[in-house]
Amino acid sequence: MKALTWHAKRDVRVESVPDPRIEEPTDAIIRVTSTAICGSDLHLYELLGPFLDRGDILGHETMGEVVEVGSGVRALNVGDRVVVPFNISCGTCWFCTHGLQSQCETTQVREYGSGAALFGYTKLYGQVPGGQAEFLRVPLADYNHIRIDDDLPDERWLFLSDILPTAWQGVEYAQTPPDGTVAVLGLGPVGQFVARIARSRGHRVLAVDPVPERREMAARHGIDVFDLGDDTVAELRDLTHGRGPDSVIDAVGLEAHGSPGIKAVQQAVGMLPDALAKPMLSHAGVDRLAALHAAVDLVRRGGTISLSGVYAGDADILPMKTMFDKQISLRMGQCNVKRWIDELVPLVQAPDDPLGVMDLVTHHAPLDEAPDLYGVFQRKDDGCIKVVLHPDRSDIPRT
């Protein structure tokens, strides 16, 4: 089959690789019909190479059709149409039954002290082949699927794999009061959904991003948008009676703009041999914290910061005096995808598309276009906000 494989920093390639096969009775194989490039994939493209091997298959936002099931699979049949959650969980352990599927005891990657295994996401999370490919092996398939029983287009359902439940969890964790105001930092794909979900709940939403096309998209959905500037925090505080918003959702994460010194450190570590870079990233890694520091500065006293953007540094320095003094609550974590699906499915299926899932993708393309589109997405060229690849269709034009 063809698959998108990692080879080095900013070097991903579509290559022929062996087809996946049933390895355990609980596995299923799906033919991938749609798979997206996620903002988290860009961390692999840029920073986390020491935890990847040449030829690793990337991708964790995937859906398609079941083509084979193991002898132990009971909930799926050949021909079923499914979305595959990005985290791999069992559904029966203590964490899964308590809605913490991202901490699944069955698939935890204990070698690295990490939570549940993820598709296409480095040794830190199990080095499981990802879904930017023509076929995908799904472990523990009875639990790790969301069955689609209608004929709505893939685009309507695909984002249940990651970014839609990630945004939902971010809003849940923000604990914004019913009549409250939430600020959203970053209007990439997750930030777009965060803003729409918060607004659908009746919150006032103030969203910040330096990219005009991202602000324009959010504004179409009734979001109050702001450019990123030196006075943005003061401007938003002035709009909230001088106190700051009740909650701030950081949808940016570890590669935030405005941290040139840390960016240089990250780049320097990335140039080291893997044997040296791995322990530095594991134990002394630092993130670009401009977005998180802005959230601490902005949120009102007694408010909540929710982190939807990925952070990976174990040596980050936080303004603990300010956080303690302001009595800030901080919530974060990998999304527990299956926990939120029952609430999200009716919204995705609703004819009026209340969360605007059909207004997010800016680029459709065949799988062969993936290497170029990684660069386009990273650079935010051509108004790129979200890329969906179609491995089963070589004839689809890039749009």
Rank of each mutant, 00 (worst) to 15 (best):
R10M: 12
P20K: 05
T26G: 14
I29D: 14
I30T: 09
T35I: 02
A36W: 03
C38V: 05
C38S: 07
L47A: 14
P50A: 14
L52I: 01
S71R: 10
G72N: 02
L76H: 06
G79Y: 03
D80R: 00
R81T: 12
V82L: 00
C93L: 07
T97Y: 14
G99A: 05
Q103A: 14
C104H: 09
G120F: 03
P139T: 11
L160W: 08
E172D: 07
P177D: 01
P177G: 01
T181V: 12
A183F: 04
G188T: 02
Q192G: 01
R201G: 13
A218W: 09
L228S: 09
V233E: 09
D250G: 02
D250N: 10
G253I: 05
S259Q: 02
L272Y: 14
D274Y: 11
A277D: 11
H283R: 09
A290R: 14
V299W: 09
S306Q: 02
L307Q: 03
Y311G: 02
M320T: 12
T322S: 15
T322P: 06
Q327F: 12
C335V: 12
V337P: 00
K338C: 04
E343G: 12
V348W: 06
G356F: 15
D359S: 10
L360M: 04
A370Q: 13
G375Q: 12
V376L: 02
D382L: 02
C384W: 04
K386N: 06
D392T: 04
R393W: 04
S394R: 14
R398M: 00
